[in-house]
């Protein structure tokens, strides 16, 4: 009798432990290590209508059902912008057949030197699926302020004439258009791909 009770208690404990392990396992599988700031719940993200290479209006609302990755930069930027764009391109390669779940949009904050066709051509160098857009200064100011992105044209000495200081982070919008993730400048392609896979699964 006592022995049976011990056995039952032991079996119950083992079952609990197994359940706990499964629960932890599911939890771990559900939340991998993330490489940026996850916004949970997602923040409302503004729609916008910037100009694409063919002259049409493009905004994240055109890609509902896909993740939208937004980066703000300019094509004359020789260092941080190509680095980030190249990492995004590598992340797309890493995603393989899931890459079609993601739309990367480069927004140029230097409309004077970057007409839409030039931004788009520049973006496509890093991945054929990428698109580049820009707009008037007024439009860009509205879009960037609604996304918490800073940019400022700054006159500099030297051949460049002016440069554009800008936020170096990359934003990820979920399938419903909510702002879901912010990656810092130094996020690796592997980190980006891992986070995108997680957001695609959700």
């Amino acid at each position: 009798m006592i022995r049976t009770r011990f056995l039952l208690a032991g079996a119950a404990l083992a079952l609990l432990a197994a359940l706990a392990a499964v629960a932890v396992g599911i939890r771990l599988a559900a939340l991998p290590e993330l490489h940026g700031t996850l916004l949970d719940p997602p923040l409302p993200a503004a729609e916008f209508a910037l100009t694409s290479a063919d002259g049409g209006a493009v905004g994240p609302q055109d890609f509902r059902g896909r993740l939208v990755v937004l980066f703000f930069g300019f094509t004359n930027c020789p260092d941080v912008c190509p680095l980030t764009m190249h990492r995004l391109g590598s992340a797309m390669e890493e995603l393989g057949d899931r890459a079609d779940q993601v739309q990367v949009i480069l927004v140029s904050v230097d409309p004077e030197r970057d007409p839409p066709a030039k931004v788009d051509e520049y973006a496509k160098r890093f991945h054929p699926s990428f698109i580049g857009v820009t707009g008037s200064d007024d439009e860009l100011r509205t879009v960037t302020s609604s996304y918490g992105i800073y940019y400022a044209r700054t006159e500099v000495e030297g051949a460049l004439g002016y440069t554009v200081d800008h936020s170096a982070s990359t934003l990820v919008l979920d399938r419903n258009g909510g702002l879901r993730m912010i990656w810092p400048f130094d996020t690796t392609p592997e980190g980006m791909a891992s986070d995108l896979r997680y957001l695609i699964r959700r």
Binding site: C77, P78, D79, V80, Y150, T154, V156, E157, G158, A159, L160, T163, D165, H166, S167, A168, S169, P184, F185
Partner: peptide, 22 residues
């Protein structure tokens, strides 16, 4: 290249700044 300059990029508080190294 038509012009070459030494530059430094800094990311300060999440903002990328690039300046010529004089």
């Amino acid at each position: 290249a038509s012009a070459v300059e030494l530059h430094r990029t800094e990311v300060v508080d999440g903002v990328m700044r690039m300046r010529q190294v004089e």
